[in-house]
Design a protein around this nucleic acid. Structure first.
Lengths: 249, 249
DNA sequence: CGACGACTTGACATCGATCAAGCGAGGTGG
DNA sequence: CCACCTCGCTTGATCGATGTCAAGTCGTCG
């Protein structure tokens, strides 16, 4: 059930934009040839299907998803979130590793790229494999930066890093607009941060009062991104991707 | 300045034992041929040399090391620790990724395996590359399990998971002895857990009073490993490695 | 002996969780 | 249409968990 915006964009448009940050090469056409199916989600939906994780690379066209893990006592930890153009299951796909569950937020639209077709493409054009790998290495480095903040920081710093990661996740596909959508509920964000939804609500109020952020109608705005980044020692891995890829090799 | 125990063991003895958990193949001789140098540390020493990280795979023969990261404000986060037989820089070595700093604890002895020699070995015998990769994937999965606990758990659960990881790290090379050495200071352990050393000291005292652990002379003992594992939903990645490698492929 | 670092303990302050109540938007059935 | 429900969010009151500051012990090393 594609929406207007879904049809408006060419397939893998956002992914191509992300990858373009790492290399001037045009790879969209090659990747489009490996598409085997697509899917749209009208309501939040966990993906329990193991086969699709292993046989296909899952790319988000529109909307959001996150990977999560349930504890025996029912608590939930959200370890990573994925915005438009993101690859949701790279490590599982490439390492055959048992990983977290995925949940697609309502409104998400995804496309699946075939494992065998991709393998063949990677053999024919190794540069594409390297490109995708670099892109995912950058995500892994961003995640490990977030984890450091979540383990050692207080609630405010945890929230700041998560908000910056959200901005970064959207900034990969466009220059960050002033007002960003808040694609997740407070309960979900609190499961990322490792704090309670109640406390998260209070801290967001506090940050609003301190003039750090503004909120309105499901969107938020960071008053001064650079100041916030400096305050928590945040480093961008996608926004400055061209610099990064230069560092990498 | 090798110690008695250093000379008593054959090179890469502990690493070979670890790998044996994942495959019956004997790979020690092949790996030994790639050794280019060795080093012993008499006092705690950070390794600042970038070249050795990239040109060599660092294997611990005896003793311990950890990787850490410094915040602008001086705080330190310790993200992983390495015991006898561990590979300290796999991700940096294989992905050319910028990673944490390493610190070798006093008494540590390491050997370095040459990058080029290893690459050649991996080409000739791909099974060895797969074996090493599986071993490091298991470590990554254990680390992500720990991170979940460190983000969402309270101080007691954080400490429990860290102690279980320490036991696991030693259990890979031998059946866990009753009394385990505590190779890190409370300050270091608190930088793993993301709590203060003072609070860690109090919590260890509390766990001792509750009969969960015993401490004596720089060593500790878990009263009931299975109970503790069940209590925090802990999963072993090395001790049950044969099961794991069966799952993996 | 004195200095130092690792650890412990106490008193106190702060942070964050818990419990409970209420509000508003959106959906459903009468 | 309204009554009613659920869900996400907010707020207040309170309690427990954790950090901070300070003092003191112990072993090690010069």
């Amino acid at each position: 059930m594609p929406t207007a915006s879904y049809e408006a964009e060419a397939p893998l448009h956002h992914l191509a934009r992300r990858l373009h940050n790492f290399s001037g090469h045009a790879v969209r056409d090659d990747l489009v040839n490996t598409i085997v199916s697509e899917r749209a989600f009208e309501v939040d939906q966990p993906a329990w299907s193991d086969r699709e994780y292993l046989d296909h690379l899952i790319v988000i066209e529109t909307g959001w998803a996150y990977s999560f893990n349930l504890f025996p006592d029912g608590r939930r930890h959200i370890s990573e979130f994925y915005g438009p153009g993101a690859i949701c299951n790279w490590s599982r796909f490439s390492d055959f590793v048992e990983r977290d569950n995925l949940l697609f937020k309502s409104g998400a639209q995804i496309r699946m790229l075939d494992r065998d077709a991709l393998s063949q493409l990677f053999e024919e054009r190794p540069a594409i494999a390297t490109l995708l790998k670099r892109h995912e290495v950058a995500r892994a480095m961003r995640a490990s930066q977030r984890v450091r903040a979540l383990i050692t920081g207080d609630a405010l710093d945890r929230i700041r890093v998560i908000l910056l990661d959200l901005v970064d996740e959207l900034g990969t596909i466009a220059n960050s607009p002033e007002w960003m959508p808040l694609p997740f509920t407070l309960s979900e964000l609190s499961d990322v941060a490792g704090i309670t939804p109640v406390h998260l609500s209070r801290m967001l109020k506090k940050m609003t009062e301190m003039g750090e952020i503004e909120r309105s109608d499901g969107r938020f705005r960071l008053e001064n991104v650079s100041t916030m980044e400096a305050g928590v020692g945040y480093r961008r891995f996608f926004g400055t991707a061209k610099v990064l890829s230069h560092e990498l090799n």
